[in-house]
Amino acid sequence: MIDKKVQIGDKKFTLGVFNDEGKLLNAVRSLRKKEVNIFDCYTPFPVHHLDKEMGIKRTNLTVIAFICGALGTTTGFSLAYYMNVLDWPMIIGGKPMDVTVFTSFIPIMFELTVLFTAFGMVIAFFTRSSMIHGFKQDILDLRQTDDLMLLAIEVNEDQPISDDEIKSIINNEGALEIRERGQALEVTY
């Protein structure tokens, strides 16, 4: 469930620092052309198409949303049916409480569908993104939530090109600076 990839841990990284999303996108594109495996990018706002360029698959949170919604609908119906039809049937306004008053159940079925969808999906989102209190989160630069964009590439043997080549590509695409992990400020929450 929890996305291991965002846990930086003790790995070694090359960081490209950008101040323009166009340049960042170009750098990602050039690196991907060389089949470099990009660890992650950190941006202060959602950069359009960045996920597609990085090769991130579309999230399947919508499936969770659908399941939670269906659960909500069923809960709504079951509540109404159990309480007002099975357990304690009443006749109100000349309408005997049986399944023919289904119309009356629709509002609450709808509300619970929305409630369950929203909460289910948001909880799944937090879990999936490791946004849980007590979890280590790495802030590589305090300005990554302000005006800088960071491109993080793991330095290891699996990369198809050398670290120097990667650095030169990032440099050519107009990075402000290139850092290695350890030079950046580390803040952990």
Binding site: G93, K95, T103, I106
Partner: peptide, 12 residues
């Protein structure tokens, strides 16, 4: 549809 149906059904 539901809005129209429900109100007419309900008020009877």
């Amino acid at each position: 549809f539901l809005g129209q149906w429900l109100l007419i059904w309900y008020a009877n």
